[in-house]
Design a protein around this nucleic acid. Structure first.
Lengths: 217, 217
DNA sequence: GTCTATAGTAAGATAGAC
DNA sequence: GTCTATCTTACTATAGAC
């Protein structure tokens, strides 16, 4: 797709779409509504995105790539540090915070992106990493609770400062796994003031896959 | 073609709708599809339900009432036993298992039922009950993780036997809260074989579990 | 590169016969 | 209680003007 001079409109469309999707839901938001908010018309949208589906995909794709890379790297590493893995998962979700919330609320709606199967696949692989190869049901529930709780907190406390949220969420998730966490929310909050920017939709690859422990040591 | 007895067709419509909603999502399922599966036509559906929205509402309403009653009762009790509250929440969700999964996957889609606000309200009240009146962020995250993890497990292990799932899920949720759980998944699985069936049942307070084996994952 | 106009499609809903 | 037929509406998508 030639993006002659101004890919500016394209990004404005993505921003407006994400706003409206977050407010009203994906299916409930028509292309007309997006166009109107920008003072454009529907065909103008189709100039920048070949279809509605591609517009949605362009929003979700960066999150997908981030998460898949995170999991793949941990799988390749051979051994898993739960704290590091959950921390990385939090950071990745946080970098795409609004999209994460969207996906959490609309799994069914976004099924045409393979998202249902994809998220299920992530969970299975994360469970394997966190609970071992053939875990009993309790261990599996602990892993599901840790991962799901992490996302839930990110969505529920959508306005909280990520650097405050991070240690609190990790403490809960590690607890769910049955791992004693050395950190305390208050005590370690600033120990590793890791921020995860609010909305850098730009393709920014993460490469701090294995910082020794996510915040404590 | 036997004349349908009063209420029979209505229930067949609800069953078919729930099937299709679970398979394809709510928005993706048209009234035409529901009618076709039953060998009926759209107008026949409109005889039993005044609108599509009312059909959906009739499916979700029982879950809503169960959960709201559960929370209200615990609030009225004055003091909260986390194990009993989470157990009751599991049982209620389990009685409406498929609807619970639907709601979890389609919060945004079902917003016209006030569901978004409603679920948020439930969470706030459950957090207050589980984490106390003015909890710090970590305590709140623990509560969110416990509740969210509970639902996630019910959805993720959608085919698991509820009586097996119950102790496993509760162990994870209580762990997330930072509460040591005396029960063990294997040890208490069959001793715990009580209802959590699909059918309505007078909500009851759950008492503490069996102080049996120990040892989480 | 952006817009106007419109084709094509599908859904929710109603009227009236049987 | 269920059907045939029909209506209204709303959206995606395309063709072509500026």
């Amino acid at each position: 797709m030639p993006r002659a001079r101004s890919g500016e409109t394209r990004e404005r469309i993505q921003a407006a779409a994400l706003d409206l999707f977050s407010e009203q839901g994906v299916q409930q938001t028509s292309l007309r509504a997006i166009a109107e908010r920008l003072g454009l018309t529907k065909p103008a949208l189709y100039y920048h995105f070949p279809s509605r589906e591609e517009l949605v995909r362009s929003l979700v794709q960066p999150l997908i790539e981030d998460i898949e890379e995170l999991i793949a790297r941990d799988e390749a590493a051979g051994s898993t540090d739960p704290r590091a893995l959950l921390g990385g998962y939090f950071d990745a979700s946080c970098r795409h915070r609004r999209v994460t919330a969207l996906v959490a609320r609309e799994l069914a709606t976004l099924s045409y992106l393979d998202l249902g199967a994809r998220v299920m696949d992530w969970r299975r692989r994360l469970i394997a990493l966190l609970a071992g190869p053939e875990p009993d049901l309790t261990a599996q529930c602990r892993a599901v609770t840790a991962i799901g709780g992490l996302s839930d907190c990110l969505v529920f406390f959508g306005d909280a400062d990520p650097s405050e949220l991070r240690p609190a969420v990790l403490a809960a998730a590690l607890s769910a796994l049955g791992i004693e966490d050395a950190e305390d929310a208050e005590g370690a909050a600033d120990a590793e003031g890791r921020r995860a920017a609010e909305e850098p939709e730009g393709p920014e690859k993460r490469e701090a896959g294995k910082p020794e422990a996510a915040g404590g040591a």
